[in-house]
């Protein structure tokens, strides 16, 4: 009897303090297998995502949209699908797109996005007339503070070194206040919060956000009074992709939907983690029960 209990406790011990590498294998498989299967489900947009979609969708052609690339390779798997889908939506609606970066890593991603999405998919979009890459400038919130009043003080040239005064689509733009919508893609510092604090609120400019899931909950207090809408994490990207696909099936049916494609892996991994938590708790309470029983016997 005592031996059985000892063995039983040994098993509990082992499960309680299992080598974490076994857990790592489960997580890796939970992500890899669904990705290889390539399944995709429709997503229903939540109100906060729909609000940003509606804002972009209702802007008249020729309106100015500033997209700020405030992220890097660390969060690109989450953010890039949002950038791609909003850029496609904006170009489809005929908006003038201003690209810039408050993060140094953002400029490389801006160039990649232009090369991968804008140029091949929207050949009619002309540089300097329909879109411009302003590039990266240092200064974080200090940069936003300057350009909210005078854009050309910081941006004397675009990313290619062209005199900003010679760019047709910059002739009517004096400051950020001339933008009809600013969407910040990021989640860290500086990011959506700084855009709201230093541009949106003082300049009365509509700010939208597309951020990592980690920072999404912290941005809810700004919605809807200080932020028009928010895409939080890959789920936000998937919802936007699904909705835009639903509304513009002809234009979007052949376009990639990385957000929706990742959702199945996301679902399986979430379920595996939930099972781990449940199993860990069951082990913990069984272990604690045994400990108590042993202590009482002593």
């Amino acid at each position: 009897m005592a031996n059985d209990e000892k063995n039983n406790r040994g098993l509990l011990d082992r499960l309680q303090f299992i080598d974490r590498r076994y857990i790592f294998i489960f997580i890796a498989l939970a992500v890899i297998i669904p990705l290889l299967l390539g399944l995709r489900f429709e997503e229903k947009p939540s109100p906060i995502v729909l609000a940003l979609y509606d804002k972009v969708d209702n802007m008249p052609p020729g309106s100015r949209l500033l997209m700020s690339f405030d992220y890097g390779p660390t969060t690109a798997p989450e953010i890039q699908p949002m950038v791609d889908v909003i850029l496609r939506h904006a170009c489809l609606r005929g908006l003038k797109v201003y690209l810039m970066a408050v993060w140094a890593t953002g400029q490389s991603l801006t160039v990649q996005t232009v090369e991968d999405v804008l140029i091949p998919e929207f050949p009619d979009y002309e540089y300097g007339i329909d879109y411009i890459n302003l590039g990266y400038k240092a200064g974080n919130q200090g940069l936003i503070r300057v350009i909210v009043d005078d854009m050309k003080r910081m941006y004397s040239t675009d990313a290619n070194g062209t005199d900003i005064e010679q760019v047709p689509m910059m002739k009517q733009v004096e400051s950020l206040k001339d933008m009809d919508l600013i969407v910040s893609f990021g989640g860290g510092f500086p990011g959506i919060k700084e855009w709201i604090l230093f541009a949106g609120d003082p300049g009365a400019i509509p700010i939208g956000g597309a951020c990592t899931a980690v920072s999404a909950p912290q941005l809810y207090p700004y919605y809807p009074n200080q932020m028009v809408g928010l895409l939080g994490g890959i789920k936000g990207a998937a919802e936007y992709e699904s909705h835009v696909l639903d509304r513009y099936p002809d234009s979007f049916k052949t376009k990639p939907t990385p957000g929706m494609n990742m959702m199945v892996a996301q679902m399986v991994a979430h379920i595996v983690i939930m099972l781990f938590i449940v199993f860990g708790n069951v082990m913990y309470f069984m272990y604690r029960g045994k400990e108590r029983k042993l202590a009482m016997e002593k």
């Binding site: 660390t74 983690i273 938590i277 860990g280």
Partner: peptide
């Protein structure tokens, strides 16, 4: 940079269990 952050998925799972 991307993989450094991706590793956190494993550690979050492990911490959740423990």
């Amino acid at each position: 940079q991307g993989t450094m952050y991706a590793l956190l998925a494993f550690f979050v799972a492990s911490a959740s269990y423990r």
